[in-house]
Simulated assay, not measured.
Amino acid sequence: MKGLILSGGKGTRLRPITHTSAKQLVPIANKPILFYAVEAIVAAGIDEIGIITGDTGAEVEAAVGDGSRFGARVTYIAQDAPRGLAHAVLCAREFLAGEPFVMYLGDNLIRHGIVPIVEGFTETQPDALILLARVPEPQHFGVAELIEGKVVRLVEKPAKPTSDLALVGVYLFNHTVFEAIDAIDYSARGELEITDAIQRMIDTGRRVDPHLIVEPHQALVATWKDTGRLEDMLEANRIVLDDLAPRMEGTIGEGVRMHGKVIVERGAQLTNCTVRGPAIIGENTVIDDAYIGPYTSIYYGCTVRNAELEHSIVLENSVIENVEGKIESSLIGKECLIGRSPLRPRAYKLMVGDHSRVELR
C-alpha cells in the first residue's frame, strides 16, 4: 500500500498567512500540519508516500525533504492547478502503479491516527473506504447519505444537506478508483470531484464502506479537524496540546510561575512570567514579564515581553511587546512585530494586507 498526501491548494480562508506560506506548513503545537499526516501514514506501516504539490511545492519539499526523517521515501508530484481531489489522484497514477493507497488531505488532523483504519481496509478489502464524522455545518463539506449502514449517495458541499455526515479528509482506495475518475466530468466549479468518483463507484456496483470516526466515550470531543479556517486551526492546536506531555528543555529564570502541562523547548528563556498550560514555548523564544494562557503555541525565535497571550498561535521570529490588553484567539504570522508606539496622541496605525481581519476592542 502507498500513501498520497495532497499539499496543493491556495488556502484562501487563511489569508494573509497563506499569501506567503503553504497552509499545510502552518504549525499546530509547533509542528507543521503536514508532518502529522506524514507521521500518521508511516505509523500505519506505509513508507512510500507521494505528495501532491502546487504553487508552494518548493517550500513543501524543503520542509519535508526526502522523507527519511520520518522513516519514509517521498516522491513529489506537481499538480498544475487545483482542479479537484480526483484530478490530484490522476496526477499520481504513475506513482501509485495500481497499488491500493490511502489519500490524506495535508491540512487535516486525525487525532489518534489511522492505524486501525488502514488495518481494517487491508483485512476487509473493499474497493473504497471513506471516513465520516458528524459536523454542525455539513454544507461546507462533502456529505454522505447512509441507508442501513451502506453509503448510497455523496454530494459535494450541498446547499441543503440531507445528512450531517461529512467526509473526513482521509480516503482509502484500490485501483478501481481510476475507472471511476476516467468516467466522470468536471463539476460546475471546474474540478474533478472525488465525491463524484466515489458515487460512480457506488453506481457501478463497487463496494464502498463507511467508517464513522468518534471519540470513544466522548462524543463531544473532536477527533478530526479540517484546518482550513482560523477557528478550526485554533481548535486543532487545542486538541494536540491537550494530548502532549509536559517537557522542560529551556531555561527557567526568576519569577516564573507555571501551571498545568507546559512544554519549553531547547534554548527558550523564561523570566518573570506566568504560563498556564496546555502551552508550548518554542526553541530560542524569550518570554519576559508576560502572561501566556492555555492553548497557546509560540514557535521558534519569538519574543513576548510585557504582553498577554491566550488561545493563539504565533509563528516563527515574531515579536510581541508592550501590548495593553490580552491577545486571544489569534494567528500571528512569521516575523511580525506587534507593539505600542510611544508617540502621542495614541492612535491605531495599521498596514493590513488583502483578506485580513483585524478586531480592535
Score class of each variant (00 low, 15 high):
residue 214 V to Y: 12
residue 215 E to I: 03
residue 217 H to K: 13
residue 223 T to C: 10
residue 223 T to Q: 15
residue 224 W to A: 08
residue 225 K to H: 15
residue 225 K to I: 15
residue 226 D to A: 09
residue 227 T to K: 10
residue 229 R to Y: 15
residue 229 R to K: 14
residue 230 L to V: 14
residue 231 E to I: 11
residue 232 D to W: 13
residue 233 M to V: 10
residue 233 M to N: 07
residue 234 L to E: 01
residue 235 E to P: 12
residue 235 E to C: 10
residue 236 A to G: 07
residue 237 N to A: 09
residue 237 N to P: 12
residue 243 D to L: 10
residue 244 L to T: 06
residue 246 P to R: 02
residue 248 M to K: 06
residue 248 M to S: 07
residue 251 T to N: 12
residue 251 T to L: 11
residue 252 I to R: 01
residue 252 I to F: 11
residue 253 G to D: 01
residue 255 G to C: 03
residue 255 G to N: 02
residue 256 V to N: 04
residue 258 M to T: 06
residue 258 M to C: 06
residue 258 M to I: 06
residue 260 G to V: 03
residue 261 K to C: 09
residue 263 I to S: 09
residue 264 V to H: 03
residue 265 E to S: 08
residue 268 A to W: 01
residue 268 A to I: 09
residue 270 L to S: 01
residue 275 V to G: 04
residue 276 R to L: 13
residue 278 P to H: 03
residue 281 I to P: 13
residue 282 G to R: 09
residue 282 G to T: 06
residue 283 E to H: 08
residue 283 E to W: 01
residue 285 T to R: 11
residue 285 T to K: 07
residue 285 T to L: 07
residue 285 T to A: 07
residue 285 T to W: 06
residue 287 I to G: 00
residue 288 D to M: 14
residue 290 A to T: 04
residue 290 A to C: 02
residue 291 Y to F: 14
residue 294 P to L: 05
residue 294 P to A: 00
residue 295 Y to L: 11
residue 297 S to W: 04
residue 297 S to Y: 05
residue 298 I to W: 03
residue 300 Y to M: 06
residue 301 G to D: 02
residue 301 G to S: 04
residue 302 C to G: 06
residue 304 V to I: 12
residue 308 E to T: 07
residue 308 E to H: 09
residue 308 E to L: 09
residue 308 E to K: 14
residue 308 E to P: 00
residue 309 L to H: 02
residue 311 H to M: 07
residue 313 I to S: 00
residue 315 L to V: 05
residue 315 L to F: 11
residue 318 S to D: 10
residue 318 S to C: 05
residue 319 V to P: 04
residue 319 V to L: 13
residue 319 V to K: 07
residue 321 E to W: 08
residue 323 V to A: 04
residue 325 G to N: 03
residue 326 K to V: 10
residue 330 S to W: 06
residue 331 L to K: 00
residue 331 L to I: 01
residue 331 L to A: 01
residue 332 I to H: 01
residue 333 G to C: 03
residue 334 K to Y: 10
residue 334 K to F: 15
residue 336 C to Y: 10
residue 339 G to D: 12
residue 339 G to T: 08
residue 341 S to E: 11
residue 341 S to H: 04
residue 343 L to C: 05
residue 343 L to S: 13
residue 344 R to Q: 07
residue 345 P to E: 04
residue 345 P to V: 04
residue 345 P to H: 06
residue 346 R to F: 08
residue 347 A to T: 05
residue 348 Y to T: 13
residue 351 M to S: 15
residue 352 V to N: 12
residue 354 D to K: 14
residue 357 R to C: 05
residue 357 R to P: 04
residue 358 V to M: 04
